[in-house]
């Protein structure tokens, strides 16, 4: 737990080396898993991994004045100061990638590298982000086929079935996922979902090394978003993760962790 302006932020911190702040998405730590996943464990072998839980997620305090992604970013600006580290690497998946991008354009001097995995956050005309809030509710009150299809390349991948099993699980697990959906809906409920229309024109401000990774079969965020990020950041490295879906860090943990670790080695 870290105290930021009187509010508690839950943090998992492990590993040693250059600090890397990782912002989670849906199929992720603090959102569908209380603990770290193989992807994070892999990363922690080569860096000081700092994984905070977003507002209202896991044990992080809720706030009743959360209006937009900018409130989240403001809180993370203070969070970065509270950590007492001058510079750090940034990475994030899905909405975590969006938040990482927003933070990087505000702290371009302090962010040593930026890695985005299936990041939301952009408005790309003609390529809407799919409505995850619709499929967050199970079919017949039981089946999460549509949610898994959106988050993964296959409908019933092993990792997908573990993170989002059918039926009703333990209440703590249900609420963990619920908190993440609530957080995401608070910052991105407006169709076409999870975007900041102004962000694309601010990307050029961050001039450090950027990795933009996305799954080959992302059913939530169209490929055009990864391409728009890569273009907006000038000279970013675009990596399409073969065989993976939206949650490439879960579906191909070694490949994606290797890529992110490579960025940390570079910055």
């Amino acid at each position: 737990m870290i105290d930021v302006m009187g509010r508690k932020i839950a943090v998992i911190r492990t590993g040693s080396g250059a600090p890397l702040i990782y912002f989670h998405g849906f199929a992720d730590v603090h959102a569908a898993s209380a603990g770290l996943l193989p992807f994070h464990e892999h990363l922690a072998r080569s860096c000081d991994l700092i994984a905070p839980a977003h507002v209202g997620c896991a044990q992080t305090d809720e706030r009743d004045d959360l209006d937009s992604v900018h409130d989240v970013v403001e809180q993370y600006l203070d969070f970065a100061d509270a950590l007492g580290i001058e510079t750090f690497h940034l990475a994030g998946a899905c909405v975590g990638g969006w938040i990482a991008a927003e933070l990087a354009v505000r702290l371009p001097q302090r962010v040593r590298s930026l890695s985005l995995i299936g990041a939301t956050g952009l408005f790309v005309s003609g390529n809407p982000i799919a409505d995850i809030f619709w499929v967050a509710q199970p079919e017949d009150g039981i089946y999460y086929n549509d949610l898994r299809h959106m988050l993964f390349a296959a409908r019933d991948p092993k990792a997908g079935m573990q993170l989002f099993p059918d039926g009703r699980g333990e209440i703590e697990q249900e609420l963990l996922r619920y908190r993440m959906f609530r957080f995401a809906s608070q910052i991105g409920f407006t169709p076409p979902y999870l975007y900041d229309r102004k962000l694309i024109e601010q990307l050029h401000r961050y001039k450090g090394p950027v990795l933009v990774a996305c799954g080959e079969h992302d059913h939530m965020v169209p490929r055009a978003h990864a391409e728009a990020y890569a273009k907006g950041f000038r000279g970013a490295r675009l990596e399409i993760i073969r065989g993976a879906g939206h949650s490439a860090h879960v579906e191909a943990p070694d490949v994606v962790a290797g890529l992110v670790a490579g960025m940390v080695g570079k910055g």
Partner: peptide, 20 residues
């Protein structure tokens, strides 16, 4: 099909406590 637009996960106005 098990879904509403007023109640359930992903509805911003729904508090964690009420869902619990």
């Amino acid at each position: 099909i098990g879904r509403t637009q007023t109640f359930g996960p992903g509805i911003p106005s729904q508090s964690v406590k009420s869902w619990e």
